[in-house]
Amino acid sequence: MVRWGVSDPSTIARLRPKKAFGQNFLVNEGAIRTIVDAALASPAPRLLEIGPGPGVLTERLLADGRPLWAVDLDPEAIALLRERFAANPHFHLLEGDAVRMPLPEGEAWSVVGNLPYNAATPILARLLTEGIPWDRMALMFQLEVAQKLMGVPGTKAYGPLSVLAQLCARLTRLVKLGPGSFRPAPKVESAVVLFVPRGDAPSLAERKVLLSVLHRSFAHRRKTLANNWQGALPTEALTRAGLDSTLRAEVLAPPIWLAATRHLLTHHPEVFPS
């Protein structure tokens, strides 16, 4: 769901919520302040906002004085944002899909985003695997996705997204929001998650292989690693990589997955065609 903060009802009224974009605008003032404060606490020289919607959050971010790039797919939102902020020399508008559109190269970003549910995972995966420089990210997700990001081994929420995110960043849930925090009210709860990059995060090359390892290992959650890797790697190779082939993927902690990925990348590169 795309949900952006706005405290002025007239601004909400100017942008018609569209089901196709899953738009629900945030009206919880405390949550708005929390998101803005988290983003501006970063020393990054640039701001990147994904899904700015009516732009009141944009206005608060621009008040900090740093250049801001805003990415939105909704033509009506683009028109409203252009009308409101085109005269601001720090405002840069990008119309397109945040999953795939090119982003300006340069220094690190502080990223803010309310991610649509059907695109949240690919947008996050892009931010984590494509070398887009960021110092901090404050991102809104449906609560179920936030729980997956912060899932712990042995739980239903824990999976590939948990491992990738936790190896790349330190995660903190900043706020949990009910449907009443938005207009119109969605049918689900939401949460804002703060990402701060880890100094010991895997390299970009390792992250791409890590995802391949995880998707294969979690392909059938109720099956053992030996069954999920059958036909690709023998159990002996999994054992040498530090993976007990008799276990299910969901019980292994992120550091084990990173060590295994590094071993497999070195000793079995043929399994991961470039």
Rank of each mutant, 00 (worst) to 15 (best):
R60I: 03
V56E: 10
D64C: 15
G106I: 12
G65L: 14
P67Y: 10
T11D: 14
K19F: 11
T11F: 11
F91A: 05
L26W: 09
D74E: 05
A86N: 09
S42N: 09
L94K: 02
E76W: 11
E105D: 13
E95P: 01
I78E: 09
P43D: 07
M101C: 00
A87L: 08
R33S: 02
P52L: 01
A13I: 00
E49Q: 02
L94D: 02
P89N: 02
A44L: 03
V71D: 05
V56S: 13
E83K: 15
K19H: 09
L15M: 09
L57V: 15
I32F: 01
P104H: 12
V99K: 00
P75I: 07
P102L: 12
H92W: 13
G55I: 00
T58Q: 08
R14P: 06
R14C: 06
P75H: 05
R14L: 15
F21W: 09
N28C: 03
F85W: 15
I78R: 10
A77I: 10
E95M: 05
P54C: 08
A38D: 00
F91W: 04
K19D: 08
Q23R: 02
N28V: 00
A13Q: 13
P75E: 11
F85T: 03
P45T: 08
A44V: 11
E83A: 14
A79K: 02
T58L: 07
L47G: 04
R82C: 11
T34F: 00
P45I: 14
A41W: 02
R60K: 11
V99E: 01
P17G: 03
T34D: 01
R14A: 11
P43C: 08
P67A: 12
P104W: 10
N24I: 01
W69N: 11
A79L: 06
V99P: 00
N88A: 15
D97C: 08
P104I: 06
L48R: 10
R14K: 15
D74R: 05
F91P: 03
V56H: 14
G53M: 09
E59V: 05
L40H: 00
L93S: 04
R66C: 04
L68P: 12
A63Y: 04
D37A: 06
S42C: 14
A44D: 14
I32N: 01
P43A: 06
L73K: 12
L80Y: 02
P75Y: 12
L103G: 03
A13Y: 04
L57F: 08
V56K: 11
R82A: 12
S42P: 05
P89C: 13
P89I: 14
A20G: 00
V27S: 12
F21K: 09
M101F: 07
G65A: 07
N24H: 15
L80G: 01
L15S: 01
P43Y: 06
P17M: 13
I32R: 11
N88P: 06
G51T: 04
P17Q: 13
R66A: 05
R84W: 07
L94E: 03
R82T: 07
A86K: 12
L62P: 05
E83S: 08
E76F: 13
L103V: 13
D37E: 11
L15D: 02
H92Y: 10
P17R: 10
I78N: 02
A31E: 14
I50K: 05
D64I: 13
V56I: 14
T11L: 13
N88H: 15
R60A: 10
